[in-house]
């Protein structure tokens, strides 16, 4: 099974897009405050009182938009790293993005003032910028350290493991040493959450996705060829080092911006590409379908977390609870496409 444009891939992409769209609408309609579906529709199309307007346009819409965009960014980033390294376990985390962002964010929380600063920081400016910078810098460090007249993906992975471990140690140390309230705030951030998302945190993710996604899609053919091994790629005229740099840079930028908006919703980048690949029956994770599955997953998880639970549950927890059983179910099914296409 090869080639990017099989009918099954089209069907998967369309299906995922449809699911994401339906969930997007559902996300605007559903919520914890008792605003009926009719009220929401009325507010949207006719105009409601000030409270309803605020809830729909300033609370629910940015939140749903953030869920879709963050999910799409993480899904695509995961598809890039998994396809690039031909390793289903290689999420952008291994490039140190998440751990770098986490180290930045947790340091801000623990060293930079009390729990109040965290609440304000999540809404405002400071924490996301620090997290994003931490992610980008760490990824640059990993890439730089793996450079020895070129970057080899195996060495890159190992260096990523080392750097990630070091930063995780720092995060753990900070959490252990912090006061309990700060430790709780840090843990909350580390799980990943969309509460407190406003339009100001949505725009960077949207712009990044718009700029980076076309760049990433431009690498589709090189990724396809790359499945056959490095030597074949070079033989078929792929400039390996440039290809690697572009793919990794795309994954890193997508991930750090997404993480800075919503915290490390770690599981999405792993599960979305795997689900998309299995649904599409392709030999590597498809980029667009992975992004759409990611968007659908995070949006669904957010709806479950804020509307269906007795009390709000962070989206990072629900993603794993929703996504993991689905992947497990896919894994337990025998399919003939699987046998020819094990990643």
């Amino acid at each position: 099974m090869r080639g990017t444009l099989t009918p099954r891939l089209w069907a998967t992409t369309l299906g995922a897009a449809l699911a994401a769209g339906v969930l997007l609408v559902a996300g605007i309609l559903a919520g914890s405050s008792d605003l009926g579906v009719g009220d929401v529709l009325h507010t949207l199309f006719v105009g409601g009182d000030r409270t309803d307007y605020f809830i729909v346009f300033e609370l629910r819409m940015p939140r749903v938009a953030a869920a879709v965009l963050v999910g799409a960014s993480l899904g695509m980033a995961g598809a890039l790293t998994q396809a690039f390294s031909r390793n289903p376990l290689a999420t952008p985390d291994i490039l140190g993005v998440t751990s770098g962002a986490a180290a930045g964010a947790v340091a801000t929380i623990v060293l930079g003032g009390g729990a109040y600063a965290v609440g304000a920081g999540l809404l405002g400016f400071g924490l996301p910028v620090v997290a994003c910078a931490g992610g980008l810098l760490t990824a640059a460090l990993v890439y730089g350290l793996s450079w020895r007249s070129g970057v080899d993906s195996y060495r890159l992975i190992l260096i990523g493991i080392g750097v990630t471990a070091a930063l995780t140690g720092v995060v753990n140390y900070l959490v252990v040493r912090a006061q309990l309230t700060q430790a709780a705030a840090a843990t909350q951030w580390l799980v990943g959450s969309l509460s407190g998302v406003s339009w100001t945190s949505v725009w960077p993710v949207a712009v990044t996705l718009l700029v980076v996604a076309p760049l990433a899609l431009g690498q589709t053919r090189a990724l396809e060829v790359g499945q056959l091994g490095d030597d074949v790629s070079v033989g078929l005229g792929v400039s390996l080092q440039r290809h690697r740099l572009v793919v990794l840079a795309c994954a890193v930028v997508l991930t750090s911006v997404a993480v800075s908006a919503a915290g490390p919703i770690e599981f999405v980048a792993f599960v979305a590409p795997q689900v998309a690949r299995r649904l599409a029956g392709s030999s590597r994770p498809p980029l667009v379908a992975s992004a759409l599955v990611g968007a659908a997953l995070v949006t669904a998880a957010d709806i479950v977390g804020r509307a269906l639970m007795p009390w709000p549950v962070p989206v990072g927890i629900v993603t794993a609870v929703v996504g993991a059983p689905y992947l497990i179910w896919l894994l337990t099914r025998r399919s003939s496409a699987e046998r020819t296409a094990s990643a």
């Binding site: 260096i159 990630t164 070091a166």
Partner: peptide, 15 residues
């Protein structure tokens, strides 16, 4: 903690 931080750095150096 030591293991992750120190181990991470040493591991990178070895790799």
């Amino acid at each position: 903690v030591v293991l992750s931080v120190l181990g991470g750095v040493v591991f990178v150096a070895i790799v």
